[in-house]
């Protein structure tokens, strides 16, 4: 069926696109788990990539393939309201980002520090970036993003240095 058609394969990312790699990786990790999240991660990567460089031939080639992926996904997702209506898509990504944030925050407050909670903080911060495809973030979302990014880096460093996060 169409839903199981593989996505067009991206060429290796040019050096200029290092900043969008995290979002593309998050997209891949969600292709099966939550395709709506995967779609908007790619859309954010696309918009950001076009701002970085869409003229250099290898950048242009990469973006064309990424656009092919997005168009394929949009067809597969069909009339999913999260794709066809911004207000629904916005709510979907915001809820997902907040769910990840809450999970990591709960683990943090319980003193359970591990790789999975660090990744949840980090992914949550990336998804708040992705949320900007719908417009400016609310102040609350800006605070969550900042806190999640900081916590992920802080706990990661503590664990790396064998220290207990405070």
């Amino acid at each position: 069926s169409m839903a199981s058609d593989p996505l067009p394969v991206l060429p290796p990312a040019p050096q200029q696109f290092k900043p969008i790699q995290h979002y593309l990786r998050t997209a891949q990790e969600h292709d099966k788990r939550d395709p709506v999240v995967a779609y908007f991660c790619r859309l954010y990567a696309m918009q950001t990539g076009m701002k970085i460089d869409s003229k250099t031939p290898e950048c242009h080639k990469f973006l064309v393939k990424l656009m092919d992926q997005l168009e394929t996904m949009k067809k597969q997702l069909g009339d999913n309201e999260s794709i066809t209506q911004d207000v629904v898509g916005n709510a979907h990504i915001e809820n997902y980002a907040y769910k990840m944030f809450l999970y990591a925050d709960t683990e943090d407050r319980a003193g359970r520090f591990h790789k999975n909670m660090i990744k949840s903080f980090y992914t949550s911060s990336l998804l708040y970036d992705v949320l900007t495809v719908f417009g400016e973030l609310t102040e609350e979302n800006v605070q969550h993003r900042k806190y999640a990014k900081w916590k992920a880096a802080y706990i990661h460093n503590c664990l790396k240095n064998g220290e207990t996060p405070q």
């Binding site: 859309l43 696309m46 076009m50 242009h60 973006l63 656009m67 168009e71 949009k74």
Partner: peptide, 27 residues
């Protein structure tokens, strides 16, 4: 040659922007 190259690049750029707009139903 240079200006032909530039206009080709700009047409390609327009194409990507248009595809992005269509994707977002903003056409």
């Amino acid at each position: 040659m240079g200006s032909v190259g530039a206009s080709v690049a700009s047409a390609e750029q327009d194409d990507l922007s248009q595809r992005l707009s269509r994707l977002r139903d903003q056409v």
